[in-house]
């Protein structure tokens, strides 16, 4: 089996996909770093002070003012109320929610890329892992070796998991390295709150815990990895089912983007919570952002994703081992 994985790695590296992905991540991180830098600058200019407490206070006042205006949708109002409460909590406990520094940047970067960006990168690798063998015709050589089909597919899947892990490591390293030059590399021990629970009654702070940023980041990375594996497995399944890499990518892309859009409009369509693409924002649960549909929790989302993962894996192996190759 290790020889088969070596083979898959050989092909993956020869195709230079990982290099392309690393470059894309590098360029985007540089862009985000600059954007973040400008944001901090303008904020400081506007308020004429560098004190985050003043900024936070100002934000709370702003948000409260907006809350008093009429003609606002219920959803939006509830979100704003939660925001005010969180900000107030940070203020009361003397915690800077946006403490600049590379670790904070990494956290924000992960939170924003878990739903679309990281899955997209994973998809680039996963979607042609099997279908490219069909389009090249090499599948005929691969399947006529004295190796059972499920072993060949398993070696490909393990390679995918390794590649996913590598992509996330690259994303972490690049976002830390590049942003560190601008914001400094310190801030691992910064306190951060987690455990906000959004219920029907509003924000529930009963389970709120104080964590060091590195602990929080570890959890973030774990969740991002999990999401990436699930999305990778789904693309992998499409790659087995559809000969055309482009078609597989298109379907996955449509699903991911529809997820990003649905997140903002499904609050009253309850059964949508079983779709995998509205469950990808796992880090939002840690950060205490309200879920797209009321009643969704971290464990619910993980369960839904696990179900999709298992189904995709089953379909992939079932079809691959049975399929006639023409």
């Amino acid at each position: 089996m290790s020889k088969l994985i070596q083979n898959e790695m050989l092909k993956l590296i020869a195709k230079k996909r990982l290099v392309v992905i690393a470059i894309i991540i590098g360029v985007l991180v540089a862009l985000f770093t600059y954007a973040q830098y400008r944001q901090v600058q303008t904020q400081q200019e506007k308020l004429g002070t560098k004190d985050w407490r003043t900024i936070l206070q100002k934000q709370i006042v702003d948000t409260t003012n907006r809350l008093s205006s009429t003609g606002m949708s219920d959803e939006w109002r509830r979100e704003l109320q939660i925001m005010v409460k969180q900000e107030q909590y940070y203020l009361d406990h003397n915690i800077n929610p946006n403490a600049p520094g590379a670790p904070t940047f990494v956290r924000v970067f992960l939170e924003n890329s878990i739903g679309l960006f990281i899955p997209l990168m994973v998809m680039v690798i996963a979607s042609d892992l099997v279908s490219s063998e069909y389009s090249l015709g090499t599948v005929k050589l691969l399947l006529t070796r004295p190796v059972k089909r499920w072993k060949i597919l398993l070696s490909k899947y393990i390679t995918l998991i390794l590649a996913v892990s590598l992509i996330i490591a690259i994303a972490g390293a690049l976002s830390y390295g590049i942003s560190g030059f601008v914001f400094g590399f310190k801030g691992w021990g910064a306190p951060i709150l987690t455990g906000f629970n959004v219920t029907k009654a509003g924000l529930n702070t009963a389970n709120v815990k104080l964590l060091s940023l590195w602990e929080f980041l570890l959890m973030d990375f774990g969740l991002v990895w999990f999401v990436a594996v699930v999305v990778g497995t789904l693309s992998f399944m499409l790659s087995v089912l559809i000969r055309s890499t482009a078609a597989g990518m298109g379907i996955m892309l449509a699903a991911l983007i529809s997820g990003a859009i649905l997140n903002n409009m499904v609050s009253s369509w309850n059964s949508a919570k079983y779709l995998f693409m509205v469950n990808l924002q796992l880090t939002d649960y840690l950060a205490g952002n309200p879920p797209p549909i009321q009643g969704m929790t971290l464990s619910f989302s993980i369960t839904v994703l696990l179900f999709w993962w298992a189904a995709a894996l089953f379909v992939s192996f079932f079809v691959f081992t049975k399929k006639d190759v023409y």
Partner: peptide
């Protein structure tokens, strides 16, 4: 089977190495 479709992005040696490992 039909045309000898090998991996175009690998060298001849690596193609053979690939199938030797199997």
């Amino acid at each position: 089977v039909e045309n000898p479709e090998l991996y175009p992005y690998l060298s001849g040696y690596n193609n053979l190495l690939h199938f030797t490992r199997m």
